[in-house]
């Protein structure tokens, strides 16, 4: 399993990197930790002519925090460094949970926050080497015109399975992009196109530079729960992130509530219904209602390895309820 041939560049500024990427258009890909991209290259799923290494670009590996601006994470911060950062550990334990749930220890040390967000979607018909894939027609993602999961479908149903996205979405994160049109700041949600074939809404030449997370308000709690078969080395079969902030004093009154999910659609889901909880007291009935809404919104497909789709769907409610209870618990304490 050798890597195919490609050119390599390691620009020393963000501007240089963007210009290079823009000039080469679709044929150049940025590489951060490489853990997602190099697997795709080895499996002959992607065929870039050039890799633009972001490793030498300065200032992309910073983690900064202020009470006014909140947390700023450079796109090239590794998951392991994110999880080890004292401020993140203190104020955003959900990010530690999510980062340490990715792949394995080594992959956490190599993989970056930016790369994790921008990772490709997964499908068990697609994420295999050319040798194994040859027994099937090429699917949408490989330029063909069939989906092996939903055979009648005109579109690709590959699932977004990143672990960080739901945690960051629940925290209300936004992202800064650098590129041809200058710097641009967007809600994180807009990074995801919802198109299984091209899941990340970046134009050629555009790079994810930084992730911003609002300051952690007092009396808030956030939890990420991941359904998997093993304790490590597994992509999520379902991931649920819940972030709650409580009003002062009155026990149980919700100030803000956010819920996000991964692995159950072509993009991570930020569940709008969770917003309705704001200003209300969190009762059992409301937790169940939220879980029901999440259940209705989730679309797990038979495209990930492991447990049945039916089971994954039935776990949505169970995991949402567990996550809400745990978030509530940590908000109170």
């Amino acid at each position: 399993m050798k890597l195919p041939k490609f050119e390599y560049a390691a620009p020393e500024s963000l501007g240089q990197a963007c210009r290079l990427l823009e000039s080469r258009g679709e044929e150049a890909h940025p590489i951060a930790g490489g853990t997602d991209l190099l697997m795709a290259l080895k499996n002959r799923q992607k065929f870039p002519k050039m890799l633009v290494d972001l490793g030498a670009v300065p200032n992309l590996s910073r983690i900064e925090y202020s009470d006014a601006d909140g947390l700023r994470i450079g796109a090239m911060v590794s998951l392991r460094r994110l999880a080890a950062n004292p401020i993140v550990r203190e104020k955003y334990p959900i990010l530690v949970q999510a980062a340490l749930s990715v792949g394995t220890v080594q992959l956490q040390a190599m993989g970056t926050v930016g790369g994790n967000l921008c990772q490709d979607t997964c499908c068990m018909y697609f994420n295999r080497s050319a040798m194994v894939r040859q027994s099937l027609e090429p699917c949408h993602k490989l330029g063909g015109c069939i989906c092996h999961v939903v055979s009648s479908s005109e579109e690709c149903w590959a699932a977004y399975t990143g672990d960080l996205a739901p945690a960051l979405l629940a925290l209300g994160a936004s992202v800064s992009m650098a590129g041809p049109g200058g710097e641009q700041r967007l809600p994180l949600q807009e990074l995801f196109s919802g198109d299984g074939k091209r899941p990340i809404a970046l134009r050629p030449g555009q790079l994810l530079a930084e992730i911003q997370v609002p300051a952690a308000p007092p009396r808030s709690g956030a939890v990420y729960l991941k359904l998997r078969q093993r304790e490590t080395l597994d992509y999520p079969l379902l991931g649920v992130a819940v972030h709650l902030t409580l009003e002062r004093g009155e026990n149980g009154h919700c100030k803000t509530a956010a819920l996000a999910m991964t692995a159950v659609d072509k993009a991570p889901i930020l569940l709008q219904e969770a917003g309705k909880l704001a200003g209300r007291k969190l009762t059992e009935a409301q937790i169940r209602e939220l879980a029901r809404a999440a259940y209705k919104r989730a679309h797990p497909m038979k495209n990930l390895y492991g447990l049945t789709t039916k089971y994954r769907l039935s776990m949505v409610e169970v995991y949402v309820e567990m996550a809400v209870r745990q978030a509530l618990e940590s908000a109170i304490h």
């Binding site: 078969q229 093993r230 304790e231 390895y305």
Partner: peptide, 26 residues
Amino acid sequence: SEEVMSKDGAVMNPSFLSYKVPTALD
């Protein structure tokens, strides 16, 4: 957890990522 899964005779999970060998945590 371990099971070689096949569809129409083709192995669907030919890797340590998709074939679930126990790790130290399991």
